[in-house]
């Protein structure tokens, strides 16, 4: 199956989003939350990045990993009380991504 254009657009936005948010892993604000918080947040960002690679290759695990990383990120923001304006923008984008993924989920490959 050829990758639909909308998924290509989402993946490109996603890659750029990860590049922008990755330095946030070691930002002073995350560092202030606790010793291991940059590690936890960093793993979530890395998982998001890997999920976009999965979606790019039309793999189901990509969508599943994206959903997992999204809910982990929400949990992280709630537990650390670090919701900001950009977090709400992120939620809107993520909701759009996941709804789009769901349309193509059945056509995606189940293998690694």
């Amino acid at each position: 199956m050829k990758r639909p254009l909308i998924l290509s657009i989402i993946c490109v936005i996603g890659f750029l989003w990860v590049v922008i948010t990755f330095p946030g892993v070691f930002s002073p604000s995350v560092k202030k939350l606790g010793v291991f918080m940059p590690a936890v947040y960093g793993l979530i960002v890395a998982a998001t990045f890997i999920s976009f690679i999965g979606v790019w290759h039309l793999k189901r695990w990509g969508m599943e990993l994206y959903a997992l990383s999204f809910f982990s990120k929400m949990l992280f923001f709630i537990l650390t009380k670090s919701f900001e304006m950009t977090s709400y923008v992120g939620i809107v984008f993520s909701a759009w991504f996941m709804i789009t993924y769901l349309f193509y989920y059945r056509k995606m490959d189940v293998n690694l």
């Binding site: 990860v18 990755f22 892993v25 070691f26 560092k31 010793v35 291991f36 940059p38 590690a39 960093g42 793993l43 960002v45 890395a46 990045f49 890997i50 690679i53």
Partner: peptide, 21 residues
């Protein structure tokens, strides 16, 4: 300790992100 953990975390994450593709 916090900066050591941060340094190792960044290295680990860079390894994952740059090596996965």
């Amino acid at each position: 300790l916090s900066n050591t953990v941060l340094g190792l975390t960044i290295s680990f994450l860079i390894g994952i992100i740059s090596g996965f593709v």
